[in-house]
């Protein structure tokens, strides 16, 4: 295979590809941020909520985690419109990914909070901290450290899952690549190039995670 023609085509479509990459990054970012915020609420409800709320949230996380992300994406785009909620493909896709992300973050946070020995809460109580204060100053800092590595993993999963939005016509990196290929017939180099871009994004996320982990490790 000649490299020249590919580089030539690549130069021609550089802005289109960049736009696709940017859309992938923004979809992922929005899904991770919204999903994590929602996930914190889910995790708190799972851990400290009154029993009915806990059951509800357990049902939510089990249901979402047991559903393929592609199904969530399709449901969010096609089903919500039937109940009058008109979302464009981008919004519907971000919503689906955020919901998916929230169920994972919620479950991670619950696990992390419950893994903290009971003695920590008791020690916080006996120095007079209220539950609220104990959570903020004692439990949360420990839970967050515990969750961090898995959370970074989830973030990388979101980037990969964003490719599923190509199915409902969101012009993210994969769909953009496919469109370019259908015009140039250079499937191998362009798929390879897209794969490399995904790798760079996820590798960056992973390095960032390692860095934060190093910074927050408790010396021992």
């Amino acid at each position: 295979m000649e490299l020249g023609p590919f580089l030539n085509e690549l130069w021609i479509v550089r802005y289109i590809l960049l736009e696709g990459l940017w859309r992938t990054v923004s979809i992922s970012l929005l899904a991770i941020v919204a999903g994590s915020l929602l996930g914190v609420l889910v995790g708190l409800a799972l851990t400290y909520g009154a029993l009915p709320l806990r059951w509800l949230m357990r049902g939510y996380t089990d249901f979402i985690r047991g559903t393929p992300v592609l199904v969530l994406v399709l449901a969010s785009y096609y089903m919500l419109s039937t109940i009058g909620l008109q979302l464009n493909p981008f919004e519907a896709g971000v919503l689906a990914l955020a919901v998916f992300c929230s169920s994972h973050v919620g479950e991670m946070l619950r696990g992390a909070l419950q893994a903290i020995p009971r003695g920590q809460t008791e020690a916080a109580k006996v120095i007079g901290l209220t539950f609220h204060q104990a959570f903020i100053y004692v439990l949360a800092p420990q839970a967050i450290r515990h969750v961090l590595p898995t959370w970074v993993n989830t973030a990388a999963e979101m980037v990969k899952a964003s490719t599923l939005l190509s199915i409902i016509g969101v012009g993210e990196l994969l769909l953009t690549t496919q469109e370019i290929i259908s015009r140039t017939f250079m499937s191998l180099p362009f798929y390879f190039f897209a794969g490399a871009l995904y790798f760079v994004v996820n590798y960056g996320i992973e390095r960032f995670g390692k860095y934060v982990e190093r910074r927050t490790t408790i010396p021992s």
Binding site: P117, G119, Q120, E122, A123, A124, K125, V126, I127, G128, V138, P141, Q142, R145, I218, S220
Partner: peptide, 16 residues
């Protein structure tokens, strides 16, 4: 609870 102070068998210091 502030009327009393307590030390535990397992210390329960805040590790962070």
């Amino acid at each position: 609870r502030l009327l009393t102070g307590m030390a535990f068998q397992q210390f329960n210091l805040f590790p962070h």
